[in-house]
Nucleic acid binder design. Sequence first.
DNA 1: TGAAATGTTGGGGCG
DNA 2: ACGCCCCAACATTTC
Length: 464
Amino acid sequence: MTTPVVVLLRRDLRLDDNPALAFATTAARPLVLLYVLDPATAPGSAARWWLHHSLTAFNRSIGGRLVLRRGDETAVVEHVVREVGAGAVHWNRRYEPSAVAHDKALKSKLTASGIEVVSHPGGLLAEPWTIATALGTPFKVFTPFFAALMSRAPFAKVIPSPGAMRWCESPLASESLKDWYLVPKKPNWAAGFETAWVPGEESARRALLDFIDEAMEPYASSRDRPDKRGTSRLSPHLAFGEISARRLWNTIAAHRPGAGRDGFLRQLVWREFSAHLLFHFPDLASRPFRQAFERFPWSTNAEHVRAWQRGRTGYPIVDAGMRELWTTGWMHNRVRMIAASFLTKHLRIDWRVGAAWFLDTLVDADLANNAAGWQWVAGSGTDAAPYFRIFNPTLQGQKFDPDGAYVRRWVPELIDVPASMIHKPWTAMSSVQGYPPPMVDHATARAEALAALKSVNPGNSGSE
DNA sequence: TGAAATGTTGGGGCG
DNA sequence: ACGCCCCAACATTTC
């Protein structure tokens, strides 16, 4: 009756609103909190840096009781359960197709050996199988999805942090985070991360409060401005579950309605939409949703890919974004769209190449958001932008970084270029030492992209 | 959660 | 005073 309970942690490194942890704690049985690093599902390079610090912060918040193990997750869990004689395993649900399959197999395996398994609501506002059209099919268009989800609000109540936890006293070896080599050493490419971010639950909560105080009211008008502190910068905290979507929603929605508040909640629903889409369409991250794009003649120009990755395309807004990403592990959302459009339209590189790069370099890397976002930009997604919508990187720069402050911050070669020319430096006669000319001509690339897109898209409209 | 091309309009310069 | 033209500003359509 007093057999220990193992709580298996993943992307839910928090005390607040953690259903599995709260439920296991109230069961009044000795607790084991376990985190397993499975090489088969290890995150990308930038996210590994975040993971290291997130685990450190979480472990500190529970007095260093976190048990860290490496290996095949199923094998490790079974081993730990046997080691301590646990009677139950709890976790919060995950929704990526591979994770669902993994957890299902783990559950049946543990259940078969007499272990009680309880899964709890995960990192979403609503379970994906509970939001459907009148026909019972998943939503493929955002607006009706938004309406359907809103009709469910308010969502499940958030669960407060558990009180005193009773720890399992069996001696349990934990590996040292140092040995996991999640943070780079020799070339410390994460130096810029350290000045940009503080991972951990406490930092996540502060980011939320700061957002409410400083950025929520003007959010609707400033969220598209990379030169301002217009966004919440909560994405990596959310991606690692340092703060729950339910907590975010409940806290923000408690404020009086307004364009800023509502705009932010809408963005949170985009995240929800992406997760639901991937749940219902498991190929979303690996194949174009729209069949026509299977035939698209993607370029495989490795030099072009490299120039894009390194921020040397010759288009300042694109290069600023790619360098911000490289330096801080994050890129402003508006600039993500511009950079993604440039790769898929101007260079005609397969969106999966860009998606893979983002997954490796973003600290907020999230399979569903990433896949849905890239497919949206490429025009191959469910509720995607019409294929003929091609961002003009010069106009986008002028519109969303009018003074060029964002460009100058990340592209120092252009520091002396006046605002009037900062988004088309090839027209400036001086002060562009070391900055490359545009790798492709906009008008030419646009025309070629339209021709290629038209060739695979039936009809003359790409919209649904 | 576009951009570019094309069409329309209306004020003002000018013969 | 009038009609004509120019063209910026705005609207529509096309990609």
